[in-house]
Design a binder for these strands. Structure first.
Length: 816
RNA sequence: GCCGAAGUGGCGGAAUUGGUAGACGCGCUGGACUCAAAAUCCAGUGGGCUUCGGCCCGUGUGGGUUCGAUUCCCACCUUCGGCACCA
């Protein structure tokens, strides 16, 4: 037996080895078809880690949180599914291969080996039998199958369009991966390129992604708000404008049909496909061509920061409400990607149109007026969402309140077949192809005769070939693997070429939580019955940085798969907890800033238990926190105190009497507090403080007959946080296997003390504290309070006007 | 600009339903043990005043509601996050 001092380096490996030997946290697959009485199934999941080779403090926080929840539920009688795996495709390994040589696969697998070892040293209660990695053919075979299913349903498609291009990573990016006009990964300014790419039709699910948020009762409101913002639903109308003297109709989207009479000009995006046709053969053609060309060279950041500019086309459109001809301009403040790529400009009531009108001296006509007060639309646009506004200068609609006017104009447009109600989203389809090597191959071939042909399911997986040169050249490095690219068409048997782009790694992580339920199935990605047993995930835990990207993609996948009949639920994660980030010296920890605190070094020095305890003791887990080296010293010190206190209590031969001492009461209160905090409040820092208090109490009363009971309970309550020391002490207390021991129960009748400290206030200020019996009546409490000599001094010469009694708390005497 | 979260000792934080502000931990001060140190243990630790009994002030700022406000309401300041040329 290790020595009598607390030595984490001796006890932690001992218990880790035992858990591994006993496969302590594995759940059988398939799960038993019927749960026993009082058995419940729960799925506790944390976000899939990218295997960078080094565990970081964010991982420690994430997986320790999950560990506490998993241990707590297991000991409360749940069957707990808690798997682990690796989000193994992605650019870092490929970039490392470019820089240092070697294959991304080798680098990744080496990193996985290291991170797995570090995870084991943390002592997390994981079902290692279910370990998966997204880069293995056993996994990506099914990623490819799901791609084909989406393709079959028209949810995957190819289109040529203007895309975000990262000049550094030499690949396209999804909209979600562009932050402030820059690449989310590397920070390079994103360019626009017109390319033919693969997309997932997530916009088909825009409405469902919004509506079905009502199934997500336990998601943080801020995550839902962020997703709502991202989807950006706008209600309005589509209105058709005809180009004067032609048969060309140009639809626009507007949220303000009530301002139609104020449209004094019309603007098209430079990329609008009809621009060249409109100006063909006209004197303005050259100037327009020049402007369009110039606009192309501007980045989205430049476009936004410069003064508004544009060019007149010489053409006009007819405003359908009043048949007035208004000039068509081309300007890059109108985005091709949103709405119809063209707008009606109402300078009186839109700031952007106003700025443009001033720039080019275009007329500004007021058509909306506030119910009260004067406005000057020549000086400033009047943009108001007030329902009190009144329409003006709007023909038969003049004088109508604005909201009513909207409806009437839409109705009128509908009757005249010039427009209709329309809902537009900010959300774009998800661009999933990447011109990089280390990702899941897209399982299609291109045949000259048959066009785009999906690879038959029986031929999956399309294996990722080894290549030697990963240097980005604007096309996928796979294109260089000529023997691999050249193939035969599954449809006609003729010569064909493989798709050389790979999938965005967010595709891999959009379904991994389903695969965990049935991780080694070789017949299908999963068995629906098995999945429906565990899913949806009861508690998902991860970083707030995934609030939009991963969480929205995973929701989309789940809905699409449910619509295909492959799943029996529409939302993957019933409860979500988003943890805050760990900062160090005021900044996010990162290698480039050189401010990384490696958990590994901390484990060596203080042990995993102290590190686990510290990361959760730092503060509320959903808030950002600053790492402090002194913190882990503190939790390490506490574990030493726990060790000594418990062994002392264990050694003392004291009868475990039925006497209810204050320490026994304190123990029951602590059980109640810790249980409520973890279970109902979902807070993790205060339970640690509560157990610390209990340990302090035991120390103060080592001779208390309840000391051994209190010590055992302290060990039992700290087990989810510090499982190694808890197991070791539990054993030394003469027991076995605390991790399957039922969670301690408290006796509600012992939560109340027999007496309490009555707070006596005079006019709301605390003047005395008096020991009072719990059974005392209100009358008795008031008498007790009034009899206090300290209180008397404040009552002298005054009249008692009112008394307030809060049972078992305080008496407030109001005097004047 | 719009939407959201937060602001409490020297520091991280606690106070769950409007009822004792500062639990727990760090740091610091003093003491015990020691030849000495580390470790450990004990005591103290929001600020000001004090006749040492206490008193006054104090949860970003200013108001309000209330017997009583860290908690509720209004306005403002600061920080952080999301969205933003989205028609």
């Amino acid at each position: 037996m290790p020595g009598d001092f607390y030595d984490p380096q001796a006890i932690e490996p001992k218990w880790q080895a035992l858990w591994e030997r006993e496969r302590a946290f594995a759940e059988p697959n398939p799960p038993p078809s019927e749960l026993g009485e009082n058995e419940r199934a729960t799925y506790v999941l944390e976000m899939l880690p990218y295997p960078s080779g080094e565990l970081h403090m964010g991982h420690v926080k994430n997986y320790t949180l999950g560990d506490v929840v998993a241990h707590f539920r297991r000991r409360n009688g749940w069957k707990v599914l808690r798997p682990m795996g690796y989000d193994a495709f992605g650019l870092p390994a490929e970039n490392a291969a470019i820089k240092e040589g070697g294959q991304p696969r080798e680098i990744t697998e080496r990193n996985i080996g290291r991170i797995r070892e570090q995870m084991r040293r943390m002592g997390w209660a994981i079902d290692w039998d279910r370990e998966i990695s997204t880069h293995t053919p056993e996994y990506y075979r099914w990623t490819q199958l799901l791609f084909l299913k989406l393709l079959e349903r028209g949810l995957a498609y190819r289109k040529e369009s203007l895309q975000n291009w990262c000049p550094n990573d030499q690949t396209v990016l999804a909209n979600e991966q562009v932050v402030d006009g820059r690449c989310e990964r590397c920070g390079a300014e994103v360019e626009k390129r017109s390319l033919e790419q693969w997309f997932f039709r997530i916009t088909d699910y825009a409405e469902a992604l919004l509506d079905e948020m009502n199934l997500l009762e336990h998601w943080p409101e801020r995550v839902l708000t962020m997703q709502r913002n991202w989807i950006g639903r706008s209600e309005g109308a589509e209105v058709v404008f005809r180009v004067e003297g032609t048969e060309i109709d140009l639809p626009v989207f507007t949220t303000r049909p009530d301002t139609l009479f104020g449209a004094t000009f019309f603007v098209m995006a430079p990329e609008h496909p009809l621009v060249s046709e409109l100006v063909a053969g006209r004197p303005e053609a050259e100037a327009v061509r020049a402007y369009v060309k110039q606009a192309q060279t501007r980045s989205s950041i430049e476009r936004e920061e410069k003064e508004k500019d544009g060019v007149f086309t010489g053409r006009s459109v007819i405003n359908p409400v009043n048949n007035e001809a208004i000039p068509i301009w081309i300007a890059d403040y109108v985005l091709m990607e949103y709405g119809t790529g063209a707008i009606m400009a109402v300078p009186a009531h839109d700031e952007r149109d106003h700025a443009f009108a001033r720039q080019y001296k275009l007329p500004i006509v007021q058509v909306i007026a506030p119910r009260e007060g004067e406005i000057d639309v020549q000086a400033e646009a009047y943009v108001s969402s007030s329902t009190d506004d009144i329409m003006a200068n709007s023909g038969e609609f003049t004088g109508l309140p604005s909201p009513e006017g909207k409806k009437k104009i839409i109705a009128w447009l509908g009757e005249s077949e010039l427009g209709e109600p329309k809902v537009t989203y900010r959300l774009r389809d998800w661009l999933i192809s990447r011109q990089r090597y280390w990702g899941c191959p897209i399982p299609v071939v291109y045949c000259e005769k048959c066009g785009v042909v999906p690879v038959p399911e029986s031929e999956l997986p399309v294996l990722l070939p080894e290549v030697s040169d990963f240097l980005p050249k604007g096309r996928s490095p796979l294109a260089a693997a000529e023997e691999w690219v050249a193939t035969t068409c599954p449809s006609c048997g003729g010569a064909a070429r493989r798709e050389t782009d790979t999938m965005d790694t967010f595709v891999d992580s959009s379904w991994y939580f389903i695969r965990y339920c049935d991780p080694h199935n070789v017949e299908a990605p999963w068995d629906r019955e098995v999945v429906d047993h565990w899913m949806p995930v009861d508690q998902y835990i991860g970083g707030i940085e995934h609030a939009i990207l991963h969480l929205m993609y995973a929701r989309f996948f789940t809905k699409a798969l449910a619509d295909m009949g492959l799943l029996g639920f529409r939302e993957p994660f019933s409860r979500l907890f988003t943890q805050g980030m760990i900062y160090y010296h005021g900044a996010k920890m990162s290698k480039s800033k050189g401010n990384v605190v490696a958990p590994d070094a901390m484990i060596k020095r203080y042990g995993a238990d102290a590190v686990r305890l510290n990361i959760l003791f730092m503060g509320p887990a959903d808030q950002d926190a600053e790492w402090q080296d002194s913190g882990v010293e503190g939790t390490s010190r506490f574990l030493g105190r726990l060790w000594r206190t418990v062994l002392e209590a264990a050694g003392a031969e004291k009868p475990l009497g039925s006497e209810v001492t204050p320490l026994v009461r304190k123990t029951h209160q602590t059980i109640a507090k810790v249980t409520d905090d973890i279970d109902r409040r979902f807070v993790f820092n205060t339970p640690i403080a509560a157990v610390m208090e209990l340990v302090n109490e035991i120390n103060r009363a080592p001779e208390d007959p309840g000391a051994r009971f209190a010590a055992e309970t302290a060990v039992s309550l700290i087990q989810p946080y510090a499982p190694h020391i808890a197991e070791e002490l539990w054993q030394r207390l003469g027991h076995e296997r605390l991790w399957i021991e039922p969670w301690p129960a408290f006796d509600a009748s012992l939560l109340e003390q027999e007496s309490f400290e009555l707070v006596v206030q005079v006019n709301g200020k605390v003047r005395d504290r008096i020991e009072a019996s719990v059974g005392a009546s209100e009358q008795e409490l008031v008498e007790l309070a009034s009899s206090s000599p300290r209180v008397a001094a404040f009552l002298e010469g005054k009249t008692l006007r009112k008394t307030i009694v809060v049972p078992r708390k305080l008496v407030n005497l109001v005097v004047g």
